[in-house]
Amino acid sequence: MILRSLSFLLILFLLLGGIYCSALPEVGRDIKAAARSGDTSAQVALARMYFEGTFGGHDPVMSARWLLAAVDQGDPDAMNILGRFYLSGVGVERDEARGLALLREAADMNQPQAQAYMAYAYGEGLGVERDSVEFLRWTRRAAENGDARSRYNLAVLYLTGSLVSQDVPAGRALLELSADQGFTEAQVALGELMIRNVDQPSDLVEACKWFAIARTKGHPRAEKRLHQIVGFMTQAEMDEAGRRANAWLQANEAGR
């Protein structure tokens, strides 16, 4: 398989952490009130707060309860997260069938992370029979809906000609999208593609930029590639690559 999922607890933290709200007491009161009134976005946000211990301690059970309230109203984001709770037994009794059913329902509603999980499930045979056609179908759907990991996975398929006809420009375009979303593996792969002179002339400055960005996240291959590439660059080129990398990092930090 192209890329295995992170551990479930890390995924759950990232999913819940993506729905950010302030931990100030008055904000917590407002969110609780909105959640009790039936606001699904508030219910998911409140689930995050209980999961992260905003109210004094990590409480996955209360987190699951508020996710269930949102699921009962048909919220696909809540289905995606609660499905993973059931798969890993976080806050609820482990129930793989229930978890997969929730993820499939969310995926059918175009929730991109759930679609990415369905691709993973069909690729690995987790709760379903391995099926390369379904793996590709769900990978495509998740990529079309903006999932960075799926865009990277689909890019690799296009670049290698696995399951699809080889299409380097399409693979490059997907890598660019995924890298700009901050997916580190895509950043390194894009840099490597840019120095290979495959479908376009090599671009050492842009490749160096992506290696430098990925290195800030501790990616070992990025560090290696960066050391290799600078030996072929002028000081002016290295300065420009550094300027571009810093601009990208600052823009993405500001956008968080």
Rank of each mutant, 00 (worst) to 15 (best):
L82R: 01
E26T: 13
G255Q: 13
Y120V: 04
E206M: 11
T40I: 12
Y20H: 13
L249R: 11
A222Q: 02
R141W: 03
R244S: 06
F211P: 06
A106Y: 10
L100V: 02
F8M: 15
V133D: 12
W138L: 06
L67C: 04
D203K: 02
E253Q: 12
R65V: 12
H227V: 14
A148H: 06
G89R: 06
E134D: 07
G99C: 06
M1G: 15
V156G: 03
G91T: 07
S41D: 15
G218E: 09
G127R: 01
A245R: 06
I213P: 00
C21A: 15
N145L: 03
R29V: 15
P60K: 08
S7G: 10
G83K: 00
I19W: 05
N145M: 02
L249G: 06
A148W: 04
M194Y: 07
M62V: 07
A179Y: 01
A189Q: 11
A119P: 11
R244W: 10
L87K: 10
S7W: 04
A251P: 05
A173T: 09
G218W: 08
G38R: 03
L3T: 15
N153D: 15
A101K: 05
P76A: 00
R215P: 00
I195T: 13
R151P: 01
T160C: 08
E93G: 07
E26I: 08
A236E: 14
N252Y: 04
F232N: 14
N197A: 10
A23D: 12
F211S: 05
E96W: 01
P112Y: 13
K32W: 05
F51H: 13
H58I: 14
Y120A: 08
G57E: 14
N197I: 01
H58T: 14
Q200T: 14
P76K: 07
A148C: 07
T184M: 06
E237Q: 13
S178P: 02
R215S: 14
Y86P: 00
V92H: 03
L193F: 04
D167N: 13
G91V: 10
G89Y: 01
L24I: 09
E144N: 09
F55D: 05
